[in-house]
Design a protein around this nucleic acid. Structure first.
Length: 486
RNA sequence: CGGGGAGUGGCGCAGCCCGGUUAGCGCGCCGCGUUCGGGACGCGGAGGUCGGAGGUUCAAAUCCUCUCUCCCCGACCA
């Protein structure tokens, strides 16, 4: 530790260092930055305004992308009849352990229990069945923003909570090719969203049979590497469901040739857990570091004044500064019971990308001091250049954060050819391991049991020579990303 | 769901083993004054019944039982 030096540079005092205890750091930073707080209900957290503001910006960026591809938003009931949940065999089995049930309504025991949705395939596919008669009714492209409940045994803020916010998209198509293409299209939207808006590089790929969604034919995923322990976080999934749900919920139609056929469906979801990814990918010992594009506050303005007589001119100057920054999400910290130094540290903890200091000196020189959160680099900027400089800086920070995260991902990813290497990397939290896999679940399970590392995905990008299975030595059908995961 | 740790003013903790004065400390909070360009200081002040319920006892933060919540490890899990 370099306590004294760090303090002089403005590090947050009461936050544990990432290297000392990453899990503790995560819990502390989520709480002290006011993203979220504990609630009295086991496994449920409160998302505070700062965290919710972040989510709203993420929502907006995703929603825009969905709508560009013709998807419309709708809303379906929270409660799903038990018999509906049971229509798709694999689906019930997969979700049974984590479904919460409503068995009473008012004073009466219900005849049929209602599931609190853990996901809405059952409800939405049923409705699709009502709406689809002809190939002319297809495709059906629907998304809903909502919360779902999964009875989690081991909660973690944002990453795994009993109730969580997400979006779930559901589509129905006339052909398998079109449905498959839609599933891939939505995964690519997630990839683009993560990389462009969140500055989080991801590995897109396909899940192994054992890791795929209950009821899906194929599950596609984007996997990101968290800081600290370098574990993986599944950050968005898209499923090609084939005819499985269409058969269970009778989504059928007459095609142009007059033949009755089942629809092909997809579903895809991204949840608030990506907020956890932002925290863990970008955060440092001083706290959060939010990507400018989704940061609730992009530039915080800290006015500085000593004597009351100085306050007037500073106030005027600050309103001029704010006026220049019309296109930037700003906040002015007028609190007069905190010293500037205290404020600097707090806004760093909360991850605001830019800090703008405006004091008597600046009024005098018609300038402000602009400081980057990511590099702590300071510069004085004249009022005339302020707007353009701030816009440029925000973009630069966004890019630099992405570049840094990308280097971290590649520096901590390595190809391995032996089980010893794989296990050594898993046990030492070395990051992702790329290794050949024969496709056999036995080999996958062995690695999981021995090392706790799982196959996160089979990346779309595959080398020409896939090598041999790291477990059994047979020819590999693909290179797989092995890692422990949150 | 199994194992471990923890719950004491808003936050962080001490006290608990070996029950016994008005339950302490630091930070924060409120008031006044001096301060303010990297976590300022002085003086004054408010605030807790010890997670909850039950029990033992003349007496419980402290001992016993049950229970709730949080954190970690595991099982389980898009």
């Amino acid at each position: 530790m370099q306590g004294t030096e760090d303090r002089a540079r403005g590090y947050v005092e009461d936050l544990i260092d990432q290297d000392d205890d990453f899990d503790r750091w995560y819990v502390d930073v989520v709480k002290s930055s006011e993203l979220a707080d504990d609630s009295p209900v086991r496994g449920c957290k409160v998302i505070r305004p700062y965290g919710y503001g972040l989510w709203e910006n993420m929502q907006a960026a995703l929603d825009r992308r969905f709508k560009k591809t013709g998807v419309q938003n709708a809303y379906f009931p929270l409660l799903i009849p038990k018999s509906f949940m049971e229509k798709e065999a694999e689906h019930v089995e997969g979700f049974a352990p984590e479904v919460a049930w409503v068995t009473r309504g008012g004073r009466n025991e219900l005849e049929e229990p209602l599931a609190i949705r853990p996901t809405s395939e059952a409800m939405i596919c049923h409705m699709f069945g009502q709406w689809v008669q002809s190939y002319r009714d297809l495709p059906l492209l629907i998304n809903q923003w909502c919360s779902v409940v999964r009875w989690e045994n081991r909660p973690r803020a944002f990453l795994r909570t009993s109730e969580f916010l997400w979006q779930e998209g559901h589509t129905a198509h006339a052909s398998a090719d079109e449905a498959e293409a839609r599933a891939l299209q939505m995964l690519d939207i997630y990839r683009d969203f993560a990389e462009t808006e969140l500055a989080i590089p991801v590995i897109p790929g396909i899940k192994s049979e054992s890791e795929k969604f209950a009821g899906a034919v194929r599950t596609y995923t984007i996997e990101a590497m968290m800081g600290g322990k370098r574990w993986a976080l599944q950050s968005g999934t898209s499923h090609y469901l084939g005819e499985n749900f269409a058969k269970a919920f009778e989504i059928n139609f007459l095609d142009a040739a007059g033949e009755r056929r089942f629809a092909q469906s997809t579903s895809w979801g991204l949840s608030q857990r990506t907020i956890g990814a932002i925290v863990m990918v970008h955060g440092d010992d001083s706290g959060l570091k939010l990507p400018p594009r989704v940061a609730p506050i992009q530039a915080v303005i800290v006015p500085i004044w000593r004597k009351e007589v100085e306050r007037g001119p500073v106030e005027e100057w600050v309103s001029r500064v704010v006026g220049e920054l019309d296109d930037v999400r700003t906040h002015v910290d007028w609190r007069d019971d905190k010293s500037p130094g205290w404020k600097f540290n707090e806004w760093e903890l909360r991850g605001v990308p830019l800090r703008i200091e405006a004091g008597p000196r600046d009024v005098q020189n018609q300038q402000v001091v602009v400081v980057r959160r990511d590099t702590r680099e300071k510069q004085t900027v004249g009022i005339g250049d302020l707007a353009s400089t701030v816009m440029e800086l925000l973009e630069t920070i966004q890019q630099d954060m992405f570049t840094a995260a990308k280097s971290f991902l590649s520096e901590n990813t390595a190809s391995v050819t032996t089980l010893d290497e794989l296990y050594e990397r898993a046990s030492s939290n070395a990051g992702f391991s790329l290794a050949g896999w024969c496709g056999d679940a036995t080999c996958e399970t062995k690695v999981k049991n021995d090392s706790r590392a799982t196959i996160r995905c089979l990346p779309f990008e595959q080398p020409a020579d896939k090598g041999a299975c790291v477990v059994c030595g047979k020819p590999a059908t693909a290179q797989a990303v092995f890692s422990r995961a949150y």
